[in-house]
Design a protein around this nucleic acid. Structure first.
Length: 121
DNA sequence: GTGATGACATTGA
DNA sequence: ATCAATGCCATCA
């Protein structure tokens, strides 16, 4: 399905030092209800090797906790290395979406949509 | 084909 | 604020 190709493009577009949510990525792919498939794809590495999967967190800024990285705190380490603050809360590792969340606009979504169409995906 | 699974999100109590 | 219940839909067995 072309959804994964789109997701790969979107993920590679996440700025360094920013994080995006699964739902946000799904939305930018034009499939608002595919948040879970984004997670599935990242888990399975279906988007390819050059994907900054560590910049993808859930809607509240929590790190997934799934062991798709070398060690459990790999994702945290990578993010902090990019300047993203990651705090330990009672529930788990969390980033401040207000400060580090990737701010996307309608224009961004439209831009992606155009890129997808010109590629026929 | 059917049913279970999941790096999610939203709603309502 | 916290927690459970739903909704969701591509994969996989």
């Amino acid at each position: 399905m072309d959804f994964y190709e789109r997701a790969a493009i979107v993920c590679r577009s996440i700025p360094v030092g920013r994080v995006a949510s699964y739902g946000q990525i799904a939305l930018l792919c034009g499939k608002p209800k595919h948040a879970r498939q984004v997670g599935y794809a990242l888990n399975k590495g279906k988007l390819g090797a050059d994907i900054p999967a560590h910049r993808v967190v859930n809607g509240q800024g929590f790190l997934s906790g799934a062991a798709a990285f070398e060690t459990f705190d790999m994702q945290k380490t990578l993010l902090q290395g990019e300047g993203v603050e990651v705090r330990q809360t009672g529930k788990g590792w969390q980033t401040d979406m207000g400060r580090y969340g990737w701010k996307t606009t309608l224009a961004d979504a439209e831009g992606f949509r155009a890129r997808f169409e010109e590629r026929g995906i």
